[in-house]
Write a protein that binds this DNA or RNA. Structure first.
Lengths: 227, 227
DNA sequence: GCAAAAGTGTTATATGTACACCCATGA
DNA sequence: TCATGGGTGTACATATAACACTTTTGC
């Protein structure tokens, strides 16, 4: 009865990447260049229409892999944008937006060409549709959620040092943290456990390696755990 | 291209109501009885399909008024449910779910008949579709958000006493709060200001009346404020 | 040995919690 | 005057933040 409404899924993907030009690590996200009108040539969030028999999160994962060849360590629904006058022309599109976190190794492997490229999350180029608002909301959610959950670990690999984990917080929250207090907080939280190994090859005293506690999830989504 | 997908909006509406049978105040929500298959006769969340030229939040407000005659003091998007095998039969439906808070006076005025009735939020009857999951998630979000925002005020009228505000917290969070500490916390937060008036007619010492601070919103939704 | 990061200890401050106590009103 | 909720004061526990200090490595 309500023909002319399309449902699509877009995903804001975050990764920590080293900016060799400025010699600092910061938040980046992959964008794809639109090849069709409206907004042809503009950068946009990766995504695509929902298939008839596909769960929304699966659409997010599929389009994410199809456009960027990335596989996320964390994926969560962000918000559904559906303003009536949202797209300048064409049929009305309702966008269910997800946000995802990927590890640095993944971020290196990902496709990158004329039509897929990484951009700074806090200073994106001109974007199609209302994607600029979406990106800043995703960034806000990432920063907010970082304070009370363990999602920072999704940016890291199997094992990591506390300095690496701390750097994730520092880069995302854009402020320095006291190493001593950070250590105590993390150790007291029980979110990580020492592997017994040490990271060798560094320039200084070898730090302990830690791993994620398998027991608990990266974030508490209440009755929606697993959805 | 993706025909056969319908978009609908449902809303979980919460209000504090006095249960005269048990002589206590608790959380209630209005439900509507389904007249059509699937799940004909079952209780369900109020809602309806999205119109072509209508924003999602407007659909929520419109269907909310149409079915229950209630006007909410707080309305926020909750989550979008779109599992492929979600409805037992018929076309695939993607539900954008909102949650709303209404004042007690509103809750008294609302429609109530054979097909629209209030139910306890924590012990709902058998519900249609996956509405049971949706309700428990909405309840979880309400309780979580209550801890770090001012939404409790959305349950109350223009002016209120601190005891009334405290009761909102106690009923929703299901635990008692120390009146002395509660007073200090609320006063320090700057979320409310005294009107200078006192509530007379009570059985005991007349308490001060307070009102909401107009300046700030009931909740901080970051870059999405106003959407 | 020196520089630098890893890791430990100590203290000040802020915040949360428990509870004793006085105040003002209706009955 | 008594019961009851309104409202204030205070002590204690815990969390946060700041920073001095020791340890262990590469060079």
């Amino acid at each position: 009865m309500e023909e002319g409404i399309e449902v699509a899924v877009s995903t804001v993907i975050f990764a920590l990447r080293h900016d060799s030009a400025r010699d600092c690590t910061s938040l980046w996200m992959p964008l794809v260049r639109r090849v069709r009108e409206p907004y042809a040539g503009r950068w946009a969030l990766p995504g695509g229409p929902v298939r008839r028999d596909e769960d929304l999160a699966d659409t997010a994962r599929r389009t994410l892999v199809a456009t960027t060849a990335l596989s996320p360590t964390y994926l969560e629904q962000l918000y559904t944008f559906g303003r009536a006058e949202r797209s300048a022309s064409g049929p009305r599109v309702i966008s269910v937006v997800y946000w995802a976190l990927v590890r640095p190794e993944e971020a290196e492997r990902g496709i990158e060409d004329e039509n897929v490229a990484w951009h700074p999350a806090d200073r994106p180029p001109e974007l199609a549709f209302d994607h600029r608002t979406i990106v800043s909301y995703a960034l806000w959610r990432l920063r907010t959620k970082m304070e009370y959950s363990r999602i920072a670990q999704a940016f890291l690999g199997e094992t990591f040092t506390l300095a690496q984990l701390r750097q994730v917080y520092e880069v995302v929250l854009q402020r320095t943290l006291d190493p001593a207090n950070f250590r105590r907080q993390v150790e007291a939280s029980g979110d990580v456990e020492p592997t017994g190994e040490y990271l060798v090859g560094g320039r200084h005293r070898p730090p302990k390696l830690y791993r994620h506690r398998e027991a608990n999830d990266l974030a508490d989504n209440g009755p929606l755990t697993g959805l």
